[in-house]
């Protein structure tokens, strides 16, 4: 009776599982729970502890307890406010572009055409490109004001070359990140669209719904679950965008493209100010939790089915 697969009647709750299989299950779950718990609690505890110390790796010696001084310093730093805004704009901008663009491209790809398989492969490809590569390729070969393709293109149509990364750094990064995530959104939304029962569309057509109302009242509600998933998964990754900033603008000019992740990275591994970086880390965790609560509610509701 140690058989872990003994309880197929999952809908009956745990009533059918014997005590024995239940404890076997606990043993099987334990390693991952313990590891994740350690992974969460140990560094978290240390971060909180460090955040209350004056602690700089470049200044060895005692690390005195200074209460919330680091927090006061971090939160009043003008760079912090800029970083918060940049983080929000980055996440919201990319989400908007990828969801709207993803829906439009998915609608297109859902039409009958020749070579659909190949088109899918082309469209999904950017998702597999590592962030450092895509950032460098865009930075040098496209956005460079002298040798980039955009510069050549602007010249060709008679415009002044535009230095994307110094004049519109955040927008440029949003563009790069959107290019990476658009395929993901498109593929998920396309898959969801293809699972829509075509009879529903035909029924709506018989009811006299125009193509636009068919999209608005039938297709879009059908996609709501997929859109939720796209937003959830992308937000997890977008909140911690790092490499794209690291290799393109290094957060600049000034703090124009510094997000929270990058700001804390600067404090810790560039200025070696462990105390301030830890305070920043705690702030980032709190903010992420606020976002997480919203997201978890949303998926809790939407994924229950």
């Amino acid at each position: 009776m140690t058989d872990p697969g003994r309880n197929p009647g999952a809908d009956l709750g745990g009533d059918m599982a014997t005590q024995h299989s239940r404890s076997a299950a606990r043993v099987m779950i334990a390693p991952s729970v313990i590891l994740l718990l350690l992974w969460m609690l140990v560094p978290l505890g240390m971060t909180i502890y460090f955040s209350l110390l004056r602690y700089n790796l470049l200044m060895p010696g005692a690390n005195p307890f200074i209460g919330f001084e680091n927090y006061a310093y971090f939160l009043t730093d003008p760079a912090f406010q800029a970083a918060i805004w940049n983080t929000l704009i980055l996440v919201a901008g990319v989400l908007f572009i990828t969801v709207v663009g993803g829906i439009l491209i998915a609608l297109l790809l859902d039409q009958p055409m020749w070579g659909q398989g190949l088109v899918r492969i082309l469209v999904i490809s950017p998702f597999f490109v590592m962030p450092t590569v895509s950032a460098l390729v865009w930075k040098n070969m496209f956005m460079n004001p002298v040798n980039g393709l955009f510069a050549h293109l602007f010249e060709f149509i008679g415009l002044q070359p535009f230095d994307f990364l110094s004049q519109a750094p955040l927008a440029s990064i949003i563009g790069i990140v959107s290019w990476q995530w658009l395929p993901f959104a498109t593929l998920i939304l396309l898959t969801a669209m293809q699972s829509l029962d075509s009879e529903q569309i035909e029924a709506a057509e018989m009811d006299g719904a125009s193509p636009f109302s068919r999209f608005w009242y039938i297709v879009l509600p059908h996609l709501s679950r997929a859109i939720t998933v796209v937003i959830l998964i992308q937000t997890i990754f977008l909140l911690s965008i790092f490499a794209e900033i690291f290799v393109t603008t290094a957060g600049g000019p000034g703090t124009a493209s510094t997000n929270l992740t990058f700001l804390i990275y600067l404090e810790s591994l560039q200025r070696f100010d462990v105390g301030t970086a830890s305070a920043g880390g705690v702030v980032a965790i709190i903010l992420a939790n606020i976002v997480a609560i919203f997201l978890m509610r949303m998926i809790g509701k939407n994924l229950d089915a």
Binding site: I29, L36, L260, Y265, L269, G281
Partner: peptide, 29 residues
């Protein structure tokens, strides 16, 4: 295969650790 009353919560908690921003634990790690 042996879901208990807490299974769903455990799963949700595990996913929520993904929400922990890596930069929050960068210094200690």
């Amino acid at each position: 295969f042996v879901p208990g009353k807490q299974t769903k919560n455990v799963l949700m908690w595990m996913l929520s650790t993904k929400m922990l921003p890596p930069v929050g634990v960068l210094v200690p790690i």
